[in-house]
Amino acid sequence: MTGRIERSLTYGILALFAVISLTPVVGVLSSAFGRQSSLDTGFSLPDGLNWGNFADAWTRGHFGTYLTNSVLVALVVVVATSVLAVLAAYAFGVMRFPGSDLLFYLFVLGLTLPQEALVVPLYFDLRYWELTDTYWALILPQTAQSLAFGVFWMRTYFRNSSRSVIEAARIDGATSWATLWRILVPMGRPALSTMVVIVFMWTWNEFLMALVMVSDEAHRTVPLGLAFFQGQHSSDTALLAAASVLIALPVVVVYVALQRRFIEGMLTGAVKE
């Protein structure tokens, strides 16, 4: 008896929390598909699916351009971070050399370092090198910041990878380079894909650096586009919502497909030694 009451109470609490989690999301979805003129920002089931808002956001809001920029930046950051982090983490994970601990802790430092502590001089440096308002201004700082997580995360993988496999490769005469790319990287695909989705999400959602580094419209990424869009059309709820959906969708799709990787990566990234 008490068991059953407790059980339904628990499911009730769970459902309540789920509803609270989803309400803003559903709200955005409903206004994105709603009618554009409607001033009601609250909940009203839209009368049918209006795809027009998305077309409007795409053309009037220039979200086509912004999405292209975001894809380009995210792609380069993810590839660069992966390659550089794998190389460095391999050395930290399986080799010993003087100063390796100190160097590794320098990378770990970046895990909790706020962007706000870097953005001011970064802006003046990149402006001096005439890199502001270019893709480089978005890619280079973001890659450096992603490396902190990438190196930390991949080092854990290399540390835990089987010693006997590495030793067997050595005995077969494989160089350290071949051992890494032919054996450890293919074996480490789960760890790698976790890092890739996390870095992709961070880069895709990144806002402060983009806001500071980019002033021309041609290089705006989607979060920046949405912020400017809100400044200009703050009353146009339907368009804002449609643009929000366009931004969130790629990450949410990957998240739903690979939620374990996301959760694992985001929760263990903070666990320092």
Partner: peptide, 25 residues
């Protein structure tokens, strides 16, 4: 070439990441 042995080549693997990390962080 034992993996756990001191190896200077480790610096080469770390270098590219370290340069970027140092310059931009």
């Amino acid at each position: 070439q034992a993996p756990g042995e001191p190896r200077a080549v480790g610096y080469l693997y770390v270098l590219p990441a370290l340069v970027l990390y140092a310059l931009f962080l």
